[in-house]
Nucleic acid binder design. Structure first.
Lengths: 214, 214
DNA sequence: GCCTTGATGGTACGACTGTACTGTACGATC
DNA sequence: GATCGTACAGTACAGTCGTACCATCAAGGC
């Protein structure tokens, strides 16, 4: 704090400005994020934004990249935090993160949706592989499901690759429906749990089967 | 065609302008749809757009309403066209419509995504119940699944309400992944078919079961 | 034939946009 | 201590935005 040093920390200044951009995008929409509004939100001058990002296009790119990194870090953090639990609980812990239940998650979804819509008509933005996080998550899910299949926890006749893709798509679609006001977050989570119930052999019948053949 | 009549057909003129708006939104993005670009695309003057819609906000509302009506009509058309087939085929026929395979469907998705993102930060737009089509479709799906359950075509232990919601969310999420470039449309359709295979009793085992007990 | 009114074009205005340019204060280097 | 480059702030410019206003022109009612 205090007086700003004359040799600034570029990383920190850029992060400050990007945070202001994402804040505006989440609250007022990405269309409301102009050079001036972002600068005002960050408490700096427009020239400072220009100095660190040059053009607005590069600022937008940085915002998208930051958002993607946040998602990636959340995934890794969830991986570390839930490394110990059962496979089904770990699956649930990750998928439920995609359902927007609190304001932070709603904000993240809003920003992502805005970039997603923008990328549909802006080739330069589409080239930024902002879906890498989702693709990585799908790979993780597939690995988890493979473990569960080895342990005999899955219902018979399941394709782990297809199930991984469908679980991710289901969670995404449920998030859409929640944000569109079609469903409460709780209802979406209940639907997610239902799907996992169908996918996994019920714990009671598993233990019953185990008790039947000792 | 020919000379424009001096007493204009308001419906027709409004439709002409809204079509131009949606064309721009699909091709260049909703942010590129200004009074001037829409007027130019429609081949009319800005004043004409003002005359029929007054303000840009009302023009955007009309565009969203039109898009919702198109979706609703597609659902009804699909209902009429596939009234005869089996339940599973009818389910598939509707859900596969949500996966963008051709340019028209991609355009529709793009427009809808743009409005969806805008509605997340614009309360006035969010109040327009643009999700009514999806909600109606979910009701239809539930009815279909109930029929299938009555006919014994469903796998045991399924909740038709949950399955209807999850199928719709799955199709939506698969559409997202296709538009995000994560998957080809064909791969998404394969995943959709996989899910339906899990939900329905395989036709072979159904006929086998029927043959076993006459 | 006149006059009203519906339908449209043209234009002007104020606000906002991204970006380029200029000025300038200060830490680092010599 | 003079010099140089970094890190800003301020401003100016050309363009676009939505919208209000005025002109026009033809069709219908009288």
């Amino acid at each position: 704090m205090g007086r700003m040093p004359k040799l600034a920390d570029h990383e920190e200044r850029r992060a400050l400005i990007v945070a202001a951009l994402l804040r505006i995008a989440a609250n007022r929409g990405l269309h409301a994020a102009s050079m001036r509004t972002v600068a005002a939100e960050a408490g700096v001058s427009v020239s400072t934004v220009q100095y660190y990002f040059g053009t607005k296009e590069r600022l937008l790119f940085a915002g998208l990249q930051h958002q993607a990194e946040v998602v990636g870090q959340r995934i890794e953090a969830g991986l570390a935090a839930n490394a110990g639990g059962g496979v089904r609980n770990r699956l649930y812990a990750w998928l439920v993160q995609l359902i927007p239940v609190n304001e932070q998650q709603r904000a993240g979804y809003t920003v992502f949706a805005a970039y997603h819509a923008l990328a549909l008509t802006d080739p330069a933005l589409a080239e930024q592989s902002y879906t890498r996080g989702s693709a990585e998550l799908e790979v993780v899910l597939r690995g988890l499901l493979a473990d569960a299949e080895q342990a005999g926890e899955l219902s018979p006749g399941r394709d782990v690759g297809a199930e991984a893709g469908n679980l991710l798509a289901l969670a995404t679609g449920l998030a859409d429906s929640v944000m569109a006001g079609m469903r409460t977050p709780e209802a979406a989570i209940a639907l997610l749990n239902y799907q996992l119930d169908q996918l996994f052999v019920a714990a009671s019948s598993r233990s019953a089967a185990a008790a039947r053949r000792p």
